[in-house]
């Protein structure tokens, strides 16, 4: 993707479950997830969000903020640029607002937007399972 930011794996820890961004077995069975501070249905095993933490001088870590769903819109500079144009975000009529979004190398000659597309999580692949951090589950 050409990115340089610090990207790490929480695999094998409870981190994603603690912050409501991965579906637990219980949620999968119920068909409902606790997300964005309420129970709801969600079309994916993983969910988007951002969480903020503060560390004091003694090294104690505090959770100060988490935001989900449309709360993440403000992180998208491209949306703010689009809001300045006559056509705006141009998402009217799209069943799923971001149905027009692609990975940045996929706006090629075959680019088409399906207005009726729902959000579908990326396909799965047979990837060898590796577990890390087995000593840190809490």
């Amino acid at each position: 993707m050409g990115w340089r930011f610090h990207w790490v794996s929480s695999n094998g820890s409870d981190f994603n479950y603690d912050y409501q961004v991965s579906m637990t077995k219980e949620e999968l069975e119920k068909g409902q997830v606790y997300y964005n501070y309420s129970m709801q249905q969600f079309p994916s095993e993983e969910r988007p969000g951002t969480s903020v933490f503060y560390k004091d001088v003694a090294g104690n870590i505090f959770h100060s903020y988490s935001s989900y769903a449309r709360g993440l819109d403000i992180l998208i500079g491209a949306y703010n640029w689009l809001d300045l144009t006559p056509k705006g975000r141009d998402e009217e009529g799209l069943k799923h607002g971001m149905a027009w979004v692609r990975h940045h190398d996929k706006y090629d000659a075959g680019y088409r937007v399906d207005a009726n597309a729902e959000y579908v999580q990326p396909a799965k692949a047979a990837i060898p399972r590796t577990v890390c951090c087995e000593d840190h589950r809490s």
């Binding site: 993707m1 990115w3 930011f5 990207w7 695999n11 994603n16 912050y19 961004v21 991965s22 994916s44 095993e45 993983e46 969910r47 988007p48 969000g49 951002t50 969480s51 903020v52 933490f53 503060y54 560390k55 004091d56 993440l72 992180l75 998208i76 500079g77 491209a78 971001m98 979004v101 692609r102 990975h103 940045h104 996929k106 959000y119 999580q121 990326p122 396909a123 799965k124 692949a125 047979a126 990837i127 399972r129």
Partner: peptide
């Protein structure tokens, strides 16, 4: 002393990361 985590949707057996999260991450 302050940490912001972006929770990027890439499940343990997904072929690729979520396009919308990739859009956010482009920023």
């Amino acid at each position: 002393s302050q940490l912001i985590v972006y929770h990027f949707m890439l499940g343990p057996d997904w072929k690729e990361g979520c396009p919308s999260c990739s859009f956010i991450s482009d920023h």
